[in-house]
Simulated assay, not measured.
Amino acid sequence: MKTESVKTLMGYVAGLIFGLGLAVSGMTDPARVIGFLDLAGAWDPTLMFVLGGAVVTNFIGYRLVLRRPNPLFGEHFQLPTRTDLDARLIGGAALFGIGWGLSGYCPGPAFASIGGLSGPLLAMLVTMVIGWFLARAIPTRG
């Protein structure tokens, strides 16, 4: 099997595992996110435990994987090199957080929930795609 085909297959498998994890943990339900943000009401701590589990898993996984000289299906690791904060990053993070808080969806759970497409989910997906195109129109620092 060609290297590109294997990389594509592994990307699909990773996405499938991620989506399955979202479904099993209940994170495809926007009410969980809204419940987590409702500190004065019926607060739901589930999201905190899912995020905590993801942080611990990622922390350990990165340390194990980066001991290797290169990835299994690539020539070199592609790690971010920028460390500065700019208006695009801060603005994008703020918009992401606002959208997540208003809709209860972030991109992963939104795509994992497409099977049960509803009006609010469709609105979130459409505005997310519009945001991708608008972000490309904003000039970047060279």
Score class of each variant (00 low, 15 high):
residue 111 F to H: 00
residue 82 R to N: 09
residue 74 G to K: 08
residue 125 L to I: 14
residue 68 R to P: 03
residue 124 M to W: 13
residue 81 T to A: 12
residue 97 G to Q: 09
residue 89 L to D: 06
residue 113 S to H: 10
residue 116 G to D: 09
residue 67 R to K: 15
residue 84 D to A: 09
residue 127 T to L: 15
residue 139 P to M: 14
residue 84 D to M: 05
residue 115 G to Y: 02
residue 138 I to D: 00
residue 95 L to E: 07
residue 103 S to P: 04
residue 74 G to T: 07
residue 73 F to E: 00
residue 76 H to C: 11
residue 130 I to V: 14
residue 91 G to V: 07
residue 115 G to L: 06
residue 130 I to D: 00
residue 107 P to M: 09
residue 91 G to Q: 05
residue 127 T to S: 15
residue 102 L to Q: 09
residue 121 L to W: 01
residue 120 P to A: 09
residue 93 A to M: 15
residue 88 R to G: 04
residue 140 T to S: 08
residue 90 I to F: 04
residue 135 A to C: 07
residue 91 G to R: 06
residue 75 E to V: 15
residue 108 G to N: 05
residue 135 A to S: 12
residue 67 R to H: 11
residue 118 S to H: 04
residue 114 I to F: 01
residue 69 P to E: 15
residue 118 S to C: 06
residue 91 G to A: 10
residue 137 A to H: 05
residue 94 A to V: 15
residue 140 T to W: 01
residue 75 E to Y: 04
residue 97 G to Y: 05
residue 95 L to N: 07
residue 105 Y to W: 12
residue 89 L to W: 08
residue 130 I to F: 00
residue 131 G to H: 03
residue 132 W to Y: 10
residue 73 F to S: 01
residue 84 D to N: 07
residue 88 R to P: 01
residue 140 T to Q: 05
residue 70 N to P: 00
residue 129 V to C: 08
residue 130 I to R: 01
residue 90 I to M: 11
